[in-house]
């Protein structure tokens, strides 16, 4: 009997030990923690320019808002940016971490556009200010955003996003370093990817290996399709349409008041 109890305890202990490494993985799934390696300066919403290097992207720990992205340094000791993204959707779950960028010339920082965590169909789309959206459009040689109010609107950040981006003035993006260190860009403006899947980053394991953001420019045709308004929202919505109606309640109250009036009249007549 003692021998059996000992074996059971041993098994229980082994099971507990086996569970320990699983905890960080669950945490990573919750906050979508992803290590990325940029081989070229990258500009985030809020005009935060990250020099090439390794960074950690993850979602802010919030139950209600699952589209606040934080970008840390590799050691996670410094937050470069806190960005209110908007949800975006893929038809198929991403098999690997996917980062896509707007197409820009090699001499310019890359502008991050989408981020999908492995297994997710819902990802994050980064929203730039109207001015930056125009700038990106001019860099990528697309139609003038001034002529297309919809495109400009799509890139307008919500007041919260602006506020959040402004909360991080010490972004320490080291623009000088970004400019002087600018290595040969991994992606040039002439690269194009027909399938969004092709823009997938390299490693399969999230947060285990840094995701290399090298082969990830977005095809301009795809951008045009998305900005057609077919699915887009000009600014991130906070709530669904207000379909609550008071018409029925007004009718009900009216009927109640008329009935009450009739009751009072009846009581008055009985009294007299």
């Amino acid at each position: 009997m003692k021998q059996r109890n000992y074996c059971l305890r041993l098994l229980a202990g082994a099971a507990l030990l086996a569970l320990i490494p699983a905890r960080p993985a669950l945490a990573d799934v919750w906050n979508k923690k992803t290590e990325v390696r940029f081989s070229h300066p990258v500009e985030l919403p809020g005009q935060v320019v990250l020099p090439s290097g390794e960074y950690v992207m993850k979602l802010m720990d919030s139950q209600s808002q699952r589209h606040i992205v934080q970008v840390f340094n590799k050691e996670q000791s410094h937050v470069y940016a806190t960005i209110l993204a908007i949800p975006t959707e893929r038809e198929k779950p991403a098999e690997r971490t996917i980062l896509t960028f707007y197409e820009t010339p090699a001499s310019q920082p890359m502008f991050i556009r989408h981020w999908y965590y492995p297994g997710d169909t819902i990802g994050q789309e980064f929203v730039y200010s109207k001015d930056r959206a125009k700038y990106i459009a001019s860099l990528s040689g697309t139609a003038s955003p001034g002529r297309d109010g919809r495109q400009a609107l799509q890139a307008r950040p919500s007041p919260e996003a602006v506020a959040m981006n402004q909360q991080e003035p010490a972004v320490a993006s080291e623009p000088e370093a970004a400019q002087s260190d600018a290595p040969a860009p991994a992606v040039t403006a002439t690269d194009s990817v027909d399938d969004a899947d092709a823009a997938a980053a390299v490693p399969a394991e999230p947060a285990a290996e840094p995701v290399d953001a090298e082969a990830a420019p977005e095809d301009q045709a795809q951008e045009a399709e998305v900005s057609s308004g077919a699915a887009g929202q000009s600014t991130p919505r906070e709530t669904l349409p207000a379909t609550a109606s008071l018409g029925g309640a007004v009718g009900l109250v009216g009927a109640g008041l008329l009935a009450a009036s009739g009751l009072v009249r009846g009581a008055r007549q009985r009294k007299s």
Binding site: S64, I86, P87, T88, E89, R90, E91, I122, E125, E225, V226, A230, A231, G232, Q233, P236, R237, E238, T239, L240, A242
Partner: peptide
């Protein structure tokens, strides 16, 4: 869903 579940009307290519 809750009124703030805007994901249900998020983008799609379908």
């Amino acid at each position: 869903v809750n009124p703030d579940a805007v994901d249900v009307i998020g983008k799609t290519k379908r």
